[in-house]
């Protein structure tokens, strides 16, 4: 009885949240589309070049989406994280060994990491 009421309340909150979410997004569909595309593109770059270490924590690589592993790294800010990824840092090889990647591409992936850790 109590549990079902709690559940009801919870669903109500979810519905309200969803409704609020909808109305908030409506004004900016266009920019949302590109943001989503950018996220997809970054995810693909990640899979092709970085996933081999960052999905598993190989050699201590912070796992993408693992908030605990990123907590102490995020405060450095995106610029420093990008610099570390480009130049190498501790056991992180420069550009993950993928020399063909541009700094802009690395930045795209790092921004994706940061989004996944928040």
């Amino acid at each position: 009885m109590l549990a079902s009421r709690v559940r009801l309340c919870f669903s109500a909150i979810l519905i309200i949240a969803a409704l609020v979410g909808c109305s908030g997004e409506r004004g900016s569909t266009e920019s949302l589309g590109t943001a989503e595309q950018q996220h997809k593109a970054a995810e693909l770059l990640y899979k092709q070049n970085c996933k081999v270490c960052h999905a598993q924590g190989i050699n201590g690589a912070p796992i993408v989406g693992n908030k605990k592993m990123w907590a102490d790294r995020l405060p450095q800010g995106v610029d420093v994280l990008v610099k570390h990824a480009v130049e190498g840092y501790g056991l992180m090889p420069a550009k993950g060994g993928k020399d063909h990647l541009t700094e802009a591409e690395i930045r795209q992936i790092v921004e994706y990491y940061v989004a996944m850790a928040n």
Partner: peptide, 9 residues
Amino acid sequence: VYPDVAVSD
């Protein structure tokens, strides 16, 4: 089976 990766030169 878990991957073992070339992590350095």
